[in-house]
Amino acid sequence: MNYRNLGNRGLRVSAIGLGCMGMSHAYGAPADHREMTELLAKAVDMGYDFFDTAEVYGTPDNPHDNEELLGNALKACRNKVVIATKFGLRFDMESGQVPYPLITDSRPEGIRRSVEGSLRRLQTNYIDLYYQHRPDPQIPIEEVAGTMQDLIKEGKVLYWGLSEASEEDIRRANAVCPLTAVQDRYSMMARWHEALFPVLEELGIGLVAFSPLANGLLSDRYNAASHFDAGSDYRAGMPQFQPDSYDKNRELLQLIRYIASEKNATPAQISLAWMLCKKPWIVPIPGTRRLDRLQENAGAADITLSEEEVKQIDQALDAMPMSGVFGGTK
């Protein structure tokens, strides 16, 4: 595994992180904790040291399942890993609806409750990287940043970041308490956040790319016959996994396959290497429940694309038709 600095605040992480949400939430029935604990141990052995979760990644029966899973699985190697989790979304337990609706809550007292809950579930006395999960229109970002500053002084949080934030919020937050990372959806199919690259570079903030394989489509492991359970797997409703999307994305998948054959790599590895070679401060966090995918994703860090090759890929992506993609289709 290769490693890189996430921004310029001193946080060094594996070049490929592991998004852990899908072990508990959104990608079918929750995975078996014993099997995932074994997988997480193998990830650490492989050199992964950057693990992403959130307090709301869970199930109706256990809304905090994912943090509990990581807390148990990583406690033996806690000083060797970087755990990122998130605050600012909470379950509306009084709604009477199941699954519980999510509502934004970045009030200082809400953040305080969240951090104590996450520390307990993660079985640790500090959180390496703590994100505001989504902007809260009711709370000025300066107030959020001030609370983060206090938590950092107290040693409960080491670094902090924002997810799905605007340039204005990034600048205002950073002016109060310097940000280490911004987490956004980013892939060959979801490039709108490239508009933030200049401000991230200017302020020395890293980008953590979630859904870097467009929820798995760019792995080239699926086709029009692929089936996802509508009751437990969000991909059943995602535009890029509808039967007609494969025709719309044929040119994209052919491009990735061609580059993969040229580089003796897989389509997933090319999709990850493209962003790794774009900027030295981008860290993708693909998720998986499978050892072979974990190994495959790690191998992307060893693939080199030249600046000219990245530019040619970008130009091709600009010009080609694509289906919609979950989480930001304009």
Rank of each mutant, 00 (worst) to 15 (best):
V176N: 02
A145P: 00
P137N: 02
S232E: 04
G161D: 09
P140T: 07
S232K: 12
V176Y: 02
L162I: 05
D169Q: 14
N223Q: 00
A209Y: 09
A209M: 08
G161Q: 05
P212E: 04
A214W: 06
S219Y: 07
P178G: 11
F241M: 05
C177E: 08
W192Q: 15
A173E: 04
G155R: 02
G237L: 13
V208W: 01
A190V: 10
V182M: 05
Y222Q: 02
P239Y: 10
P178L: 13
G155T: 04
M238H: 13
D169H: 06
P212G: 06
Q183R: 03
A230P: 04
D184F: 05
A225W: 03
C177S: 12
G146Q: 01
G206F: 00
H227V: 15
D169P: 02
E164S: 12
N223Y: 00
F241I: 08
R235V: 06
R221Q: 15
V144D: 04
Q149W: 02
D220M: 01
G206I: 05
D184P: 05
E143G: 02
D136F: 06
R171F: 10
A173C: 09
S163V: 00
E167K: 13
G216V: 10
R221M: 13
L200S: 08
L213A: 06
A209K: 00
G146T: 03
L151M: 02
L196M: 13
P137Y: 00
A165G: 07
E164Y: 08
N223K: 03
A165W: 03
D229S: 13
L207N: 06
N223W: 01
H193A: 08
A214F: 09
S226R: 03
M188T: 05
E201W: 10
D184W: 04
E194Y: 10
V182R: 07
G231D: 13
D184H: 10
R185C: 01
C177A: 11
A165C: 06
S232L: 11
K156P: 01
